[in-house]
């Protein structure tokens, strides 16, 4: 069997698929308090990336008819993306480890030949200290690039830097 089909950039015209509602994971009536996750996406020159597609996936709470677990947000001219979702709880990781609450993001854009995968954790969660992924990253600034900060009630701020000194940590898919 051949290897997986090669990725090709999403390009600048993916908005033909765009559904503005898709950034709201609570739109099908998911119960429970919702959170907002918002932030800006920057390139290596510090300029906002205005044509990206950011996708969010979370394994917790378990997806259901009312909660798809998946959302998609474009970035606007100032690089802003914004999701509405349910805050995840911890999940069971490998070797019986507990993973701190987190969201997965996939970033697609013109100029990205293939998706970039990353995770978003939540500041001040005690489980962050023992999370298997965060524990892999020794350098505090790199580690901080995966942690969203509180930004008002029920709101979290998380900027993503594609390239440069404060570059976000990305994961092998």
């Amino acid at each position: 069997m051949p290897s997986a089909t090669a990725q090709q950039t999403i390009g600048p015209y993916w908005h033909l698929l765009a559904d503005p509602q898709a950034a709201d994971l609570t739109r099908f009536g998911a119960p429970g308090p919702a959170i907002t996750l918002q932030g800006r996406l920057f390139d290596g020159a510090g300029a906002p990336v205005g044509d990206a597609c950011i996708e969010l996936w979370q394994a917790d709470p378990s997806p259901s008819e009312l909660f798809p677990g998946f959302g998609r947000s474009g970035t606007n001219a100032d690089g802003w993306f914004r999701f509405r979702t349910l805050k995840p709880g911890p999940i069971r990781g490998r070797g019986n480890a507990t993973e701190a609450p987190h969201l997965a993001l996939a970033i697609h854009a013109r100029g990205l030949t293939r998706p970039l995968f990353t995770r978003v954790y939540f500041a001040a969660d005690a489980l962050n200290e023992t999370d298997p992924l965060l524990s892999l990253i020794g350098e505090p600034a790199r580690r901080a690039s995966l942690i969203a900060e509180p930004d008002g009630a029920g709101s979290w701020r998380h900027d993503i830097r594609l390239q440069g000194a404060c570059e976000t940590v990305f994961l092998e898919g």
Partner: peptide
Amino acid sequence: QPAYATPAYRSTALRAPFSAPISFPGSLT
């Protein structure tokens, strides 16, 4: 699979990360 940094495709210049993605076996996520 394509490399993120592909100089002939100019838009990758400011968008391809400098650091290699870290290897993480992943979980349910």
